[in-house]
Structure formats: C-alpha cells, structure tokens
Amino acid sequence: MSKSTGEYLSSGPQFAEGEVIERIEVFRRRRPRLLDDHVTLAHGAGGKASAALVDAVFLEAFRNPLLESLGDGAILTLPGGERLAMSTDSFVVQPRRFPGGSLGELAVHGTCNDLAMAGALPQWISAAFVLEEGFPIDELKQIAADMAAAAVAAGVQIVTGDTKVVPRGAADGIFITTTGAGVIPADRTFSATAVRAGDKLLLSGSMGDHGMAVMLARGDLAIEADIHSDTASLSPLVELLMAAAPSTRWLRDATRGGVGTVCNELAQSCGLGVLLDEERLPVQPMVNGACEMLGIDPLYVANEGKFVAVVAPDEAAAGLAALRSHPLGADAAEVGEIVAAPEETVVLRTGFGGTRIVDMLVGDPLPRIC
C-alpha cells in the first residue's frame, strides 16, 4: 500500500510535514544549468555537472527525438520494423590493468551492457584507438587480446574500427572509443514512462566494486584490500531476468555516478519517487570499509557489472530468484520501490529508522574509473 509523504519522512529529521515537503522542493531534481566556463573533471563523473554539460552543449546542438530520451543507447527502427539499439562509449581508465579487469575488457563490456540495458542482444562492435606516440606495442597487443577474449565471451564481433596516432604528450597513452549495435526482440520495450508506483527495484549485485578496485590499484592511498572489479557482460543476466519477469519496465547499468545517480535519473524520467532501503543495499565489507576510510558513499561509486531493474510487483520474487541463479547475480537484492510521492526524488530509509534524500552526484570523487 502506498504511503503518504509524511509517513515516509516522519522518522527522519524532525521537521513538520509541510517543512519537509518544502525542503524536498529545494532538493528536487531538475536538469541543472551549465554555469562553468571551462570543462572540469566533474563534467565526466556522471552526476549534476555531466547532466548540465550534455543538456547545454550536446543536446542543444544535436536535438532530435531519438537523442532526447538520453538513454545509454539509441533505439532505431528499420524500414522492415526490426529494431536495433546503438551505443557509443569511450574508455580512458587509469591504471589500464587493475584487479579483476583491464581497459580492453571494459571497452567491450561497457558497450555490450549499454546495449543490453536497451533490451538488445549485443552483436557487433566498432573500435577506435587514439594512441600516443611512444606507446608500447606489446601493451597494445595485450589490450587487443583482452578485447578479443571479452568479445568472444560476450558473443559479439569487433567488425570495424579506426586508429589515430597523436604526438607524444597529446594523450595519456591510449584512449578507446567503441560503438555497438544489437537487435531488440520484437516484444521487448523498456521505458521510464512504463514505471508505476508500487513497482520494485532490483539491484543485480553489490555496489562499488569496480570504482574502489581502480582507486586502490592506483597506489596513491595507503589502503590494502582484496577488492576486484566487477566488469562483465550483463546480457546473459538480463535474459534470465526477462524470462522470469517479462513485464520488466526499465533497466540501467550503474556505472559513473553509481546507484544513487541512476536512481535520480529514473525519478526524473518517470516523474515518481524512488524509496531505497539502506539495509537491503548490498555492499561487500571491504568495499564498505574502504569507502568509509575515504569518506565516500558507496551509493555513488561506479560499477561495471551491475544494473538496476524496475519490475512489476508480482514478478519481483521470480526476477530476484533468476538473478541469484547466475554467478553474476549471486548478491542480487530487492532494494526499494517506486512511490507516488515525493515526486522526482530519491529517499533512503536508513538503518536507524530515519530517512535522507539521495541527491545526484556532485563533483568527481573517483576520476577516470572507466
């Protein structure tokens, strides 16, 4: 049964209901305006600054109905009625090899996952390489080998590409850009407009593994922890979910900005609220400990092998069981639900019985993690 705004927030900070609603209006997510005169690292973090940059520069310049959905990929309808998903991504992670993964694996997994989140079965990838003069050929061969192995495992082909070499100092070794395409089954549509109050949120596994693995691999911090990136192709997990929960409304992989930012994007897109339960959010103990030492909320730490799904209430149990049946979804959990109010807002019910608002990511706590 849906609750009122007052019921959701009564155990949080001790404000009168009217004052709580007024404070929510202050925090309510609207696409932020671009106020910067120069690009900063925050513009690449996937949070408020990224949204402002996309809106003010790219959406303004390229505006069209396909782009305006602002998904991770475009849905293209061919003359015969068949639908394709197409997605582009760039990869600049440092270090290029880290516990559990590598730059080459990310380049394939990230593109496959964007296609899977659009409902597509990934099939083809194009790859473009910007190489800095002096980059070691042996390392380039290893990156290509990593990409090839990841593509075979994901069931996709790397079918075309491009290579550019820039002078020494003009790039940081290597940058990779990939574009992927895949076919969407005829009976499958994911959309925030299909989300309804009462729908359940499933998270396919623990938060923050990738971001913290990369952060610690840089060696700048005196922290030792056995944390591995979760980078993986999620298409098999999506297909299991769809078989068990065919009315799934919406999917998004929680990469830059983490689960907190993804939930904010969902709330803005569907016009409803998202209520998360802190005690149900899965976080590995070592990841949680590292985040506490660094003062970072795991809700905002990037993943490369986890997604958030909105499913119909009567399919949530079956969907969760299907996710847990696969090694990639062993730690999956039902972490919250869609609520009618407060609209366009993410609220976290804390372990202490209170509540707090989860805003979009501000700044860039973990730069260059993908």
Results as ranks from 00 to 15, higher is better:
residue 119 G to T: 05
residue 132 E to R: 04
residue 36 D to I: 08
residue 101 G to Y: 00
residue 357 I to R: 07
residue 76 L to N: 14
residue 179 T to N: 09
residue 341 A to P: 01
residue 44 G to W: 05
residue 55 D to A: 07
residue 36 D to Y: 07
residue 154 A to H: 06
residue 113 N to P: 14
residue 79 P to G: 10
residue 238 V to C: 14
residue 150 A to W: 03
residue 64 N to W: 13
residue 131 L to E: 11
residue 18 G to S: 09
residue 48 K to P: 07
residue 228 H to R: 11
residue 227 I to S: 02
residue 223 I to M: 04
residue 102 S to G: 11
residue 44 G to L: 10
residue 12 G to K: 02
residue 176 I to V: 15
residue 104 G to S: 06
residue 285 P to W: 02
residue 75 I to Y: 10
residue 103 L to S: 10
residue 86 M to Y: 14
residue 84 L to C: 05
residue 55 D to T: 08
residue 250 W to A: 02
residue 363 G to V: 11
residue 182 G to N: 00
residue 56 A to R: 11
residue 280 R to Y: 12
residue 294 L to P: 04
residue 232 A to F: 07
residue 304 E to L: 15
residue 237 L to G: 02
residue 244 A to K: 00
residue 237 L to I: 03
residue 254 A to G: 14
residue 261 T to M: 06
residue 85 A to K: 06
residue 201 L to F: 07
residue 124 W to D: 10
residue 157 Q to N: 08
residue 183 V to G: 15
residue 157 Q to F: 10
residue 272 L to M: 12
residue 343 E to I: 09
residue 210 H to K: 11
residue 337 E to V: 11
residue 202 L to N: 05
residue 302 A to R: 02
residue 127 A to N: 02
residue 289 G to F: 09
residue 147 M to F: 04
residue 330 A to I: 11
residue 323 L to T: 01
residue 258 G to M: 06
residue 62 F to G: 13
residue 249 R to Y: 12
residue 273 G to P: 03
residue 369 I to M: 12
residue 284 Q to P: 05
residue 39 V to W: 14
residue 156 V to R: 00
residue 291 C to L: 13
residue 362 V to Y: 08
residue 143 I to D: 03
residue 278 E to P: 04
residue 332 A to N: 01
residue 271 G to P: 01
residue 55 D to F: 08
residue 252 R to I: 06
residue 306 K to N: 14
residue 170 A to S: 15
residue 255 T to D: 13
residue 15 F to T: 12
residue 97 R to H: 03
residue 358 V to T: 00
residue 161 G to H: 04
residue 298 P to K: 01
residue 337 E to K: 07
residue 229 S to K: 01
residue 60 E to F: 05
residue 52 A to V: 03
residue 253 D to W: 07
residue 213 A to S: 06
residue 290 A to R: 03
residue 256 R to L: 15
residue 49 A to P: 03
residue 281 L to G: 03
residue 49 A to S: 09
residue 277 D to Y: 10
residue 21 I to P: 04
residue 217 A to W: 01
residue 45 A to L: 10
residue 166 V to T: 12
residue 53 L to Y: 08
residue 236 P to V: 06
residue 28 R to G: 01
residue 211 G to Q: 06
residue 139 E to W: 05
residue 77 T to L: 14
residue 163 T to S: 07
residue 288 N to I: 09
residue 47 G to C: 02
residue 211 G to H: 05
residue 336 G to P: 02
residue 15 F to P: 04
residue 88 T to D: 14
residue 169 G to T: 09
residue 254 A to Q: 12
residue 37 D to Q: 12
residue 370 C to P: 09
residue 74 A to R: 10
residue 120 A to I: 08
residue 265 E to D: 09
residue 238 V to K: 03
residue 7 E to I: 08
residue 57 V to Q: 05
residue 136 P to G: 07
residue 5 T to P: 11
residue 341 A to Q: 08
residue 79 P to Y: 13
residue 132 E to V: 09
residue 270 C to H: 05
residue 211 G to E: 04
residue 35 L to P: 03
residue 151 A to V: 01
residue 64 N to E: 15
residue 311 V to T: 08
residue 113 N to F: 09
residue 193 T to R: 14
residue 88 T to A: 14
residue 245 A to P: 10
residue 285 P to V: 03
residue 367 P to A: 05
residue 348 L to S: 00
residue 8 Y to S: 07
